[in-house]
Design a binder for these strands. Structure first.
Length: 399
DNA sequence: TCTGGGGTCCTAGGACCC
DNA sequence: TCTGGGGTCCTAGGACCC
């Protein structure tokens, strides 16, 4: 039997938090973001959107479109506590909940709505209660899969409720532009439009043709897209709490520079932040990544594996500086970032290490075998090399 | 005064091993 | 005999999302 999955998306979440603190902002064009070098719009109110302001837009450009906009730097601890309120509210209805980001979650409501005669009315009441109790507005998608629920919550904003059964897919999703398909961004959509795929319906048609050429074009994604678009994608709401796989910190410099010493200062404070946050999260990682963005926005990504997983500041910094030294060229750099990757719990490292408690014994035991293996390899190589040489001699002839 | 910062996941090539 | 093949790890880089 089909499940009932909800995707709940908070509308203009950061702005709403600010409005609740300061009601005089309501109905005004509000932008959350930094002003000055590198400042972009994090999010904005619906009023600001009427002027063409969008997330990710440089703030200077946004103020040109909407000079009267009120610009507020983010108050992230406020948003975080409001986000907790939101999740706790939803948990009262169902424990099967997956937080997808600070302002959205998937909920499996199959059990909760089992005996409900009018489930949509129930969901509407839920939406109203959230507004009444927390002041937060949301859009809700209701569907048998996570993908369809996500598309549904996006369909009508703010305070929308959109139900998408499998049979509704052609009516609701097919007319939408290809960019609105979750996972198709600004690099992929022009390619699709070039081959005549302008809407989700166009994509569905191509996929359902089942021809080999389309399969080849989409490669690995083919069957995933097909499941999503036909309404048979995943309906499993993952209740596991979020477990970070990497912790990173990056910053845009006050001005572009290629001075090693200047960048080193940035890299040390970034490394400190990463180390502190990893310790706070009780995580260790075994790879350090350095990101550099130059003045032409070319990004390079260099990483180095550590001997053992750690969150030690000196190790992170030293590794990052080795990477910096190796990769800093003549180009002025505008941004640097340090990331600790492949995070695990320190307990797992202890387990891994304990395997090697008797390392000396093992080493001794293996030494002979290794030696033989190594000799074998060398001989194999030598034999191979001789063979190749002798062949070459035969072919070309040497003195 | 041009274009953030936090992440995740996937791919592909080279090294290395058997 | 005309430079094995399969598996895995490491590294670099790209695309996407919020």
């Amino acid at each position: 039997m089909a499940k009932v999955i909800l995707h709940i998306d908070l509308n203009a979440f950061f702005v709403r938090c600010e409005e609740l603190e300061n009601p005089s902002l309501i109905g005004k064009p509000v932008i959350i973001g930094r002003v000055g070098r590198g400042g972009v719009v994090s999010t904005c109110s619906y009023k600001a959107r009427e002027y063409g302001v969008r997330s990710g837009m440089p703030t200077f450009q946004a103020t040109k479109l909407c000079p009267q906009a009120i610009i507020i730097p983010g108050h992230y601890s406020l948003y975080s506590s409001k986000s907790h309120e939101f999740i706790n509210f939803v948990k009262r209805y169902s424990k099967i909940i997956e937080q997808a980001s600070v302002d959205e979650c998937y909920v499996d409501m199959t059990e909760a709505l089992k005996n409900e005669k009018e489930p949509i009315k129930f969901i509407k009441k839920m939406q109203d209660s959230l507004l009444k109790e927390t002041g937060l507005m949301c859009s809700i998608g209701v569907a048998p899969t996570k993908f369809l629920a996500k598309m549904g919550s996006d369909y009508k904003k703010p305070m929308g409720i959109t139900v998408i059964h499998r049979k509704d897919i052609p009516d609701i999703l097919y007319p939408l532009p290809i960019e609105s398909f979750f996972g198709i961004g600004k690099k992929t959509s022009p390619k699709l439009r070039q081959v005549g795929i302008n809407t989700i319906g166009d994509l569905a048609k191509r996929i359902q043709n089942d021809d080999e050429e389309t399969k080849h074009e989409f490669g690995k994604f083919y069957y995933g897209i097909k499941e999503w678009i036909t309404g048979y994608g995943s309906d499993v709401v993952e209740t596991e709490p979020w477990d970070p796989k990497s912790i990173g910190n990056s910053t845009t410099f006050k001005y572009d520079t290629n001075s090693f010493d200047e960048i080193k200062e940035y890299v040390s404070s970034l490394s400190k932040e990463v180390s502190d946050r990893a310790k706070e999260a009780n995580k260790v990682g075994d790879s350090v990544q350095l990101v550099l963005k130059d003045n032409e926005f070319k990004v390079i990504n260099r990483s180095k594996k550590l001997a053992k997983a750690t969150n030690d500041y000196d190790t992170i910094l030293t590794t990052a500086l080795i990477l910096l030294e190796k990769n800093l060229g003549d180009k002025p750099i505008r941004l640097a970032g340090v990331t600790l990757q492949n995070l695990i719990d320190p307990a797992e490292v202890v387990e891994q290490m304990s395997i090697f408690d008797n390392f000396d014994e093992i080493k001794e035991e293996c030494a002979t075998k290794l030696l033989i293996a190594e000799l074998n390899r060398k001989m194999k190589k030598a034999v191979f090399k001789t063979a190749v040489e002798s062949l070459r001699d035969k072919k070309y002839g040497t003195e």
